[in-house]
Design a protein around this nucleic acid. Structure first.
Length: 478
RNA sequence: CGGGGUGUAGCGCAGCUGGUAGCGCGCUUGGUUCGGGACCAAGAGGCCCGGAGUUCAAAUCUCCGCACUCCGACCA
């Protein structure tokens, strides 16, 4: 009986992964559709996850000297167009403002799809001397890209993100910044989101419009499709020159600074859903869970249970844990199912029998494991259990990744492996874009990255048979 | 942007050989329950996605839009 109901509410991931994903987004109350196509509302629970992510990342950015700023949401067309590659890259998906009140604007204004141009324009005004470098800026905002097809978190016409923008005196410094921020993302994915990543460099075909180099952290979802987690770009001085950003150097000569940008988005919530979720709903890593511990009183009508549960809530909260207790008169089963759907990492059940034993029952969301926790050992047991959930999620995601990386020598083999197992297919590659197109055409895969951790799988390109330059990962990407 | 599917109460759906709406869940109130999605009773809630058309009469038939969704191409 109970089971039938569960199935009604959320599609099994084995049956239809895409539908399962959409179900979770709605049923866990993360998002709602807005009245404009492709726009979504981040509901309180979804936004709380984002806030937790923000808080942790923001602190990390600040540790390395970055400061937050706020740039305008509108960019004059003439400004946006100064750098050709960027414009071309984003042109199809820019939304324009053409009216101000009832007046037609002299120059139309773009909703920012990204803010390199605004930062450059600003720097061209304020930068004078090498002494002012580096400028390490970041902003938390939303951007608009007029996408054709949309999906909650993965692709919407407006999404929330942080975009870091920095300028440096030397290329080396800027390159180091690019690498540092990529590692910052990688650490965030692995340690906070519990999602292992492959770090690497994007091919020229896949890199950011206008960038000299794009680095990425790639991760693997439960359906064995790849998701680009976050990217970090090195621009050289290309934008500086296009936007006339200059400073007087140590040699008293006018110079162009070297620039980076790096971004991560609410798409990471989608990554968490698809990396950890199961058929009972969302599964959240404790570090970003809005509610880390849900306390469910059992037989709450019996004397003393509610009081004891309130006491338990206080104790757990006092440990710095985000905890909540559900005193509603919904049944136990309903509450269990509800908080499983919401992905709460740890559930504490407290009923008359537990009170008698001076304990409670802790249930892990990741594997359903039940532990009896003595009430006077909460301060050690609860944080330890949360750590175990965090680690458990990472371990199984790690296993999923490791078991889905396959070497291939030819396109045909790559195609077959992808069709049979999904995941990342690694091959040698000559570096030619034609071979990427061939892989897309024949095997349905795009290049994900050229991993920093290189392996020698052979001497020739899997696509054309010419001498290979690097090992590359392929995959079907979101 | 191409190809499918779907729009009727908050959610899931029925009604579709025309006669202006119904079921289950949820919600509200009261009561009984309570160790995995409880039960009884009484309620509240809908210009049937929008616009044209056909008709005495449209949720139902015909066009045209829009939105969501799935699969491709494109992109975070």
């Amino acid at each position: 009986m109970a089971k039938e109901k569960k199935v009604e509410q959320i599609t099994d991931m084995e049956e239809d992964f895409a539908q399962w994903y959409t179900d979770i987004c709605r049923k866990a109350e993360l998002v709602e559709y807005a009245s404009v196509k492709g726009f979504t509302i981040l509901r309180p629970y979804g936004y709380a996850i984002w806030e937790n992510m923000q808080q942790i990342m923001d602190a990390e950015f600040k540790k390395t000297g970055h400061v937050n700023v706020a740039m305008p949401v509108l960019i004059p067309e003439s400004l946006l167009k100064k750098e050709g590659e960027l414009v071309n890259g984003f042109a199809p998906e820019v939304a324009w403002v053409t009216m101000g009140g009832s007046e037609e604007l002299e120059e139309r204004l773009a909703f920012r799809p990204t803010s390199e141009t605004m930062f450059c324009d600003h720097w061209s005004q304020v930068l004078h001397s090498y002494r002012e470098l580096p400028m390490l800026y970041n902003q938390w905002c939303s951007v608009i890209r007029w996408e054709k097809t949309t999906r909650p978190f993965l692709r919407s016409r407006e999404f929330w993100w942080q975009e870091g923008h920095t300028i440096h005196e030397t290329a080396e410094e800027a390159e180091a910044e690019t690498e540092q921020q990529l590692n910052c993302y990688a650490d965030f994915f692995e340690n906070v989101l519990a999602i292992p990543v492959v770090r690497g460099r994007k091919t020229d075909k896949e890199k950011f419009a206008g960038a000299e180099a794009t680095y990425t952290v790639e991760c693997l979802m439960k359906d064995h499709k790849a998701l680009q987690g976050a990217t970090s770009h090195y621009f050289g001085d290309k934008f500086s020159r296009a936007y006339d950003v200059t400073f007087t150097g140590r040699d008293n000569k006018l110079q162009y600074p070297f620039q980076t940008s790096w971004g991560s988005t609410t798409r990471m919530i989608g990554a968490v859903i698809m990396a950890h979720g199961d058929n009972n709903g969302l599964v959240l890593p404790p570090k970003i869970a809005p509610i880390q511990v849900i306390i469910v009183p059992v037989a709450a009508h019996k004397p003393g249970v509610t009081e004891k549960a309130e006491e338990l809530l206080k104790k757990v909260s006092s440990l710095g844990i985000r905890a909540k207790a559900d005193f509603s008169d919904n049944s136990l089963g309903w509450k269990c199912a509800q908080y499983e759907m919401k992905g709460v990492p740890l559930r504490l059940e407290l009923g008359p029998r537990d009170i008698e034993n001076n304990s409670c029952v802790a249930v892990r969301r990741d594997n359903g494991e039940k532990t009896v926790v003595p009430l006077d050992e909460l301060d050690t047991c609860i944080p330890a259990l949360l750590d175990k959930v965090q680690q458990g999620l990472y371990d199984s995601a790690r296993m999923n990744l490791e078991q889905h990386i396959f070497p291939a020598q030819t396109i045909e083999e790559a195609k077959q492996l992808q069709e049979e197992h999904g995941g990342f297919i690694k091959t040698m590659w000559c570096g030619d874009e034609q071979c990427e197109l061939a892989m897309k055409e024949k095997a349905g895969m795009s290049s994900r990255c050229i991993p920093f951790a290189q392996e020698h799988l052979g001497d020739v390109c899997a696509c054309c048979g010419k001498p290979a330059k690097t090992m590359i990962y392929w995959g079907v990407a979101y």
